[in-house]
Amino acid sequence: MSQSLQERIAAFPFWYHKIELPGGIVTPGWAPINQASYGVPKDLTGKRVLDVGAWDGYWSFEALKRGAKEVVAIDDFSDYLGQLEENQRCAWDTFDLCREALGYSEDICQRIEMSVYDVSEERLGRFDVVFCFGTLYHLRYPLLALDKLAGLCDDELYLESAILDDFSPYQGGLGHGYSGKQMVMEFYPNNEYGGNSTNYWVPTLMCLANMLKAAGFNQVQAWKLVKQPTQVGLCRGFAVGSKAT
Rank of each mutant, 00 (worst) to 15 (best):
residue 103 G to P: 01
residue 107 D to N: 07
residue 214 A to D: 13
residue 211 M to P: 07
residue 202 V to C: 08
residue 189 P to I: 04
residue 140 R to T: 14
residue 14 F to K: 15
residue 141 Y to W: 14
residue 124 L to R: 12
residue 132 C to E: 10
residue 10 A to E: 15
residue 10 A to Q: 15
residue 203 P to R: 04
residue 10 A to T: 10
residue 192 E to W: 04
residue 41 P to D: 11
residue 113 E to D: 00
residue 204 T to P: 09
residue 177 G to A: 06
residue 37 S to P: 06
residue 241 G to L: 06
residue 153 C to F: 06
residue 223 W to V: 04
residue 211 M to R: 11
residue 186 E to N: 02
residue 88 Q to D: 02
residue 31 A to S: 15
residue 20 E to C: 04
residue 72 V to F: 09
residue 163 I to W: 07
residue 180 G to Y: 06
residue 218 N to D: 12
residue 93 D to S: 10
residue 218 N to P: 05
residue 205 L to K: 07
residue 53 G to H: 03
residue 138 H to R: 08
residue 179 S to P: 12
residue 202 V to E: 09
residue 160 E to P: 09
residue 140 R to Q: 15
residue 201 W to D: 07
residue 43 D to L: 03
residue 74 I to S: 13
residue 201 W to M: 05
residue 148 K to C: 07
residue 166 D to I: 02
residue 92 W to S: 04
residue 109 C to L: 04
residue 156 E to Y: 03
residue 222 A to S: 12
residue 200 Y to K: 14
residue 49 V to N: 12
residue 183 M to Y: 14
residue 19 I to Y: 01
residue 63 A to G: 14
residue 94 T to E: 13
residue 156 E to L: 08
residue 51 D to W: 00
residue 101 A to H: 01
residue 193 Y to G: 04
residue 192 E to R: 06
residue 140 R to W: 11
residue 224 K to N: 04
